[in-house]
């Protein structure tokens, strides 16, 4: 089953151009060290999947990439800028080039779909006319296949629709990097496959580089050009899906077996 879900769409990856470069990254909360010296490069045009169990530090890693958390040690360079050295204005400017899809979509409850999509646009591209805003909203909604939901409230949408609108909200600024935090968490298998396809379509249409945080192997196989496996704050293995799981390491084996037993 896993093989039939392998990624088919692929954009050229430029391995000479890392868009995200992480060196010696450490992060802890209180006495608990979550990331223990992580090194990672994400290349231009690449979909990188970070796999790991719950609590392995995946979400912390992606939030550091977006500048939502500060590292304790190490450097995180995004699109050539060291995140820790940026002031608020510079960080805000950089964030317009990064899209972040949250685990629970994080749609603004008090706004309908249109207002959710309009919010980042009008705040970052103040020169746009009403017709340009309308066109941009129509385009991203069409891209995620939800044109009919324009005036619906988030509470009226299904889990899959909320994910799509969350992705549309990030796409409206045409980011160069997409960060997906558990894109298929809490979705049924059919909707998960649709979201996986959408991630690949986004890469194809918007020429984005992506980091996909997940513990779902089907998602990892369907969307990842390269996988890294995070365990106890360190990367265990990296490579293609087959390379990562072609090992006798019990942690990796267990992760693979339990995932597919649970998935089946």
């Amino acid at each position: 089953m896993a093989n039939s879900m392998a990624k088919t769409i692929s954009t050229p990856i430029d391995r000479s151009r890392p868009v995200i470069s992480i060196r010696g990254l450490k992060k802890g909360f209180g006495n608990m060290q979550v990331l223990k010296g992580v090194d990672l490069d994400v290349y231009h045009g690449e979909n990188l999947v970070v796999l790991g169990r719950s609590g392995s530090g995946k979400s912390v890693l992606i939030k550091i990439m977006a500048g939502l958390l500060k590292p304790d040690a190490g450097t995180v360079s995004v699109l050539g800028r060291d995140i820790a050295r940026l002031n608020t204005k510079e960080l805000q400017a950089l964030r317009t080039r990064i899209g972040f899809s949250f685990q629970n979509s994080a749609l603004y409850d008090g706004m309908d779909v249109r207002a959710n999509l309009e919010f980042p646009l009008v705040r970052n591209k103040r020169h746009l006319s009403h017709s340009q805003i309308d066109a941009a909203i129509a385009k991203v909604l069409d891209d995620v296949g939800l044109s009919q939901t324009l005036y619906q409230m988030p509470s009226e949408l299904s889990g899959g629709q909320r994910k799509r609108i969350g992705i549309a909200r990030t796409l409206i600024l045409q980011p160069e990097i997409m960060l997906y935090d558990e894109p298929t968490a809490g979705l049924d298998p059919v909707t998960s496959v649709e979201i996986n396809d959408l991630i690949n379509e986004v890469q194809e249409r918007y020429h984005t580089s992506s980091v996909i945080i997940t513990h779902d192997l089907t998602c990892a196989k369907a969307t990842g050009d390269r996988l890294v496996m995070l365990s106890e704050g360190q990367f265990l293995r990296q490579g293609s899906f087959e390379e990562v799981f072609d090992t006798d390491d019990p942690k990796v084996k267990n992760f693979y077996n339990y995932n597919f037993i649970a998935g089946s």
């Binding site: 939502l68 608020t88 317009t96 949250f102 749609l107 919010f119 980042p120 705040r123």
Partner: peptide
């Protein structure tokens, strides 16, 4: 957090 990553304070 979503507001922050959309470059809004």
């Amino acid at each position: 957090d979503a507001m922050e990553v959309s470059s809004t304070n």
